[in-house]
């Protein structure tokens, strides 16, 4: 629980075809803390996030050099069980993407896929996940209804609950509030405050105030490089790099 790194990248480089999207990124994510990645559009923050759970594998023509370690294991080592990696590192996406199934089945999907079969076990996991995502009270009477009938904010909390249901250690959030109204956004921020007691959270956001509100550490990225990384307080009050200062004060981006 001390500020030990749980995920680190060393000299990470990534190319989409010929575009050098990530340039020599070295970063250490502290355990059970919230780390925010900020930067203008196209700076590579989402790309970096997707490296941590190897979701970039799904995209064609991607080349990666450098190392990413989770715990003390290199996640790109041949023979790495990517499926198991994604169980330990979960992801919440920008646009809520609930499956066209019932609320219950959405949450139970992850556990079922990983072998949980007993109904009472599933029931317990579903309730706990929904409680942890602050959604239980709103949906407890309609677990069999379609998840697509929920509001945007509720759907996003459902996706968070779905991620929690597989019991990850790290939660990656890719602009989780971009598609939500201010009240739903506030609920998610409350949730992050609570989640960080038990999970490591890495959040990509283009909303600087949000990054300053919720995170303990912040990394500023620009054109594929990690320009500055440090405690949130320091980054937002007196950043060391001029580029960071210019971005934060709105002079570009």
């Amino acid at each position: 629980m001390s500020d030990t790194p749980i995920i680190s990248a060393h000299n990470l480089n990534l190319w989409y075809n010929d575009t050098h999207a990530l340039q020599s990124i070295s970063i250490a994510i502290r355990e059970k803390r919230v780390t925010a990645l900020i930067g203008p559009s196209g700076c590579g923050k989402s790309t970096l996030l997707r490296c941590f759970n190897r979701l970039n594998d799904l995209i064609d023509h991607v080349k990666i050099t450098g190392e990413i370690t989770f715990g003390d294991v290199n996640i790109h080592a041949p023979g790495t069980d990517v499926v198991h990696l994604r169980k330990r590192i979960g992801m919440v996406f920008q646009k809520p993407n609930p499956f066209p199934k019932s609320i219950y089945d959405n949450i139970a999907y992850g556990p079922r896929v990983h072998g949980v079969k007993e109904k009472k076990d599933l029931d317990r996991i579903v309730e706990k996940s929904l409680r942890d995502a602050a959604l239980w009270e709103e949906v407890r009477d309609r677990l069999a209804d379609s998840a697509l009938g929920l509001s945007g904010g509720q759907q996003q909390r459902l996706c968070i609950a779905r991620t929690l249901a597989v019991g990850p250690e790290v939660i990656l959030m890719d602009e989780p509030c971009s598609a939500l109204d201010p009240i739903a956004t506030a609920k998610i921020e409350n949730l992050i405050e609570i989640l960080k007691k038990n999970y490591t959270v890495i959040i990509v956001t283009h909303n600087m105030q949000q990054a300053a509100r919720v995170s303990d550490y912040t990394g500023f990225m620009y054109l594929g490089k990690l320009v500055e990384f440090g405690e949130t307080r320091q980054i937002f009050e007196h950043p060391s790099e001029t580029l960071t200062e210019n971005y934060i004060t709105g002079r570009f981006g």
């Binding site: 759970n53 979701l55 799904l58 499926v83 169980k87 996406f93 499956f99 896929v113 996706c159 597989v166």
Partner: peptide, 15 residues
Amino acid sequence: VPQALREGSLALGAT
């Protein structure tokens, strides 16, 4: 079927 659903499923550790 939207690609987002596939990504969501794989991100949960499904094969």
